[in-house]
Structure formats: C-alpha cells, structure tokens
C-alpha cells in the first residue's frame, strides 16, 4: 500500500529533484497513513540510495538490469508497474520532466491509472482523490479528480520544498524480468554537456530578450548569472535568431521553469513567454518600456535600458 516514487538518477547520482519527489511522496503517504517506497533503476551506490531516507523513504527498491541501461519508456514502465504491483501501491509519484513524461502515460495505460500531471501541491482531497494542476499554460488551474483505483502524479520541478526526515531506509535489490528482445529502442549516440548548471535545475535564472539588442551584448548577463550561481535563459525571438542556443528558450514551447528568482532582461512578457516562467517564485523585470506586460507579472521592476542597467547590477553584486 506504500506510496511509490520513481527516483531517476543521473550517472548514479540523485539531485534536488529526487529529494523533492521523495518529500512530496512522504506528504501524500502522511495523508494516506502509509509509507514511501522509492524505486531506482540503474547502478546507484548504497550510500547514495540511503540519501532518499533523509527525505522520508522507508524502503528503496534498487533495480539493476543491463537491458535498462538506456531509457526505453516501454521497458521502464513495465518495471515500475511490476514493482507497484509487488508493493500494492495505489499512488505513484514521478517527475514531470522528460523522463517522467515518457514513462507516466505508458504506466497509466498498463495500470489503468489516471494521471494528474504537473502537480505542485499536495492533493487537495483524499476521497475523492483530487489534485490541483496547472492548465491553459498557467492561465488557469484546475481541480482534477482521479477516479481510478491507482493514481499517478507527476510533480513539477522546483515546486515542492524539501522536507528532511530521520528515516533510515532499507534497501532491497530487485532483479527485474526484462528480456533484451523486448527493448525496441536503441541509443546510438549521446551528446551531453557536463559541469554546466542546467536551466531546469537552477534556483536563479537570468534571461535576456530582444531588448539585449545584439548577441554581442550578452557578457554582463552571463556574468551576473555566474556571480549569483545561476543559469542563463532567453526568450523565443532570441533563440530563433540564433543569438543564444535553443536549449535556453524558456516559454510555452520551450522550457518551463520555476526558479526562486527569474530576472527578465529586455523581455516584454508575451503570454507565450509567461507560460514558461509564471511559476517562478520571484520575477524581476528590466525593460525600457514602462508599459511592457512583464511588469504585471513581476514583483520588482526597473524601467530602463537593459544594457545600461546590467553592468550596474554586476557592480552592485560584486560589492
């Protein structure tokens, strides 16, 4: 009956998102009067697995199988379904990131379990099981009732505070039944940047728009992000123009992020842009147009030329 949480690992390591997931699962388990079981797929050291206990997992099921070395959504959903059945779990928590979006829907059909996707708060109600979810790209929220016996919730990153716990988790090694011939996708090449702060992981994001005027003007913005330990982002026109890489585009069709601080520099704040950043805890707008819609979403604003304000901000932070 435990709440099952799938904790993805990145080269054998967990990150803040993993602990957010476990903290969230612990919150749901408390509502249900049950405990949290985490399922991990792939090779993760015991000491790392134990970390999940620090956020409320009582049991960790560690699945290792050479046929699961790359994400195959069909195979992964199969394994998680197998573990869910073994544990008798009625609620399954997965991240609402690319991996979670690949696995959750397949798991849903396999278990006939309704999905509440992109949740950021604990369920509103236990019976009927009701969650609060973002809809219309952030322009509305909905209370969604999940009617099936088993429920799947996908948690938005950076939306749930970590809740430390004094649990000591037990670890169970589990040999999944995965036949290599059932894995139908193969990864033939991987290109990955290492050592760079990922936009989706960053607590602070400094983002530039057309108000930056030219791709040559980015250095104070990058410097500000570096000084604050944040990541850089941009608006759609900027990535479309090739001023910045596509991976930096935040907005409806780009990345959807929820940092603690989002600084929009020279971004007017079109609806499509706001759809990607509206869950940020604090938004700062720097724009020369005092009527730019971004100011309606911002808590702090500076009306002024981005290129003049940025160097001053850099100086202020340095001091």
């Amino acid at each position: 009956m435990s709440v099952l949480v799938y904790t993805e690992n990145w080269d054998g390591k967990f990150k803040k998102l993993s602990y957010e997931l476990v903290s969230y699962a612990a919150g749901v388990a408390k509502m249900n009067g049950t405990s949290v079981t985490a399922v991990s797929v792939g090779r993760v050291e015991e000491a790392e697995l134990k970390q999940l206990g620090n956020y409320g997992a009582s049991k960790i099921i560690s699945v290792t199988n050479e046929n699961l070395s790359q994400l195959d959504s069909q195979a992964y959903a199969g394994v998680i379904a197998e573990v869910a059945a073994k544990e008798g779990s009625k609620v399954i928590i997965i991240a609402n990131n690319n991996t979670g979006k690949a696995i959750a829907p397949r798991l849903s059909v396999r278990l006939k379990a309704g999905v509440g996707s992109g949740v950021s708060k604990l369920p509103v109600n236990h019976n009927p099981f009701t969650v609060y979810k973002r809809t219309y790209s952030g322009n509305a929220f909905a209370q969604l009732v999940i009617k099936s016996d088993i429920k799947i919730l996908t948690l938005a990153q950076n939306s749930f505070d970590l809740v430390p716990s004094s649990n000591t988790a037990t670890i169970e090694n589990y040999t999944a039944n995965v036949d290599g011939s059932t894995v139908k996708t193969s990864v033939t090449n991987v290109e990955k940047q290492t050592g760079k702060m990922l936009l989706t992981d960053a607590d602070i994001v400094i983002s530039g728009g057309r108000g930056m005027k030219s791709p040559d003007n980015w250095s104070p913005l990058v410097e500000l992000a570096d000084l604050l330990g944040g990541a850089t982002a941009c608006s759609r026109p900027v990535s479309d123009e090739g001023w910045r890489p596509h991976g930096e585009h935040t907005g409806q069709t780009g990345k959807i992020i929820a940092p603690n601080l989002y600084v929009a520099v020279g971004i007017s704040g079109a609806t499509q842009h706001l759809a990607g950043i509206s869950s940020s805890k604090y938004i700062v707008a720097i724009n020369s147009d005092k009527d730019a819609p971004i100011f309606e979403s911002a808590q702090y604003g500076i009306v002024g030329d981005a290129l003049k304000v940025l160097p001053k901000l850099v100086e202020a932070v340095k001091e």
Binding site: K112, V115, T135, G138, F141, A142, V145, S278, Y300
Partner: peptide, 26 residues
C-alpha cells in the same frame, strides 16, 4: 475516462510590482 476536472480557478494574482530607480540598481 479516469480523470475529471471538477473546478477551474484563476491563478493567484501577483503583488503589485515594486519599482526601483534605474540609476540605483543596488
């Protein structure tokens, strides 16, 4: 169907923007 929306609501309004003088971003 396995899910049903029972109620929609608007996102909570954000507090009014606090403006800072462009000459003094400190």
């Amino acid at each position: 169907p396995l899910t049903q929306v029972v109620e929609f609501e608007k996102p909570a309004p954000r507090a009014a923007c606090k403006y800072i003088d462009a000459e003094n971003p400190r």
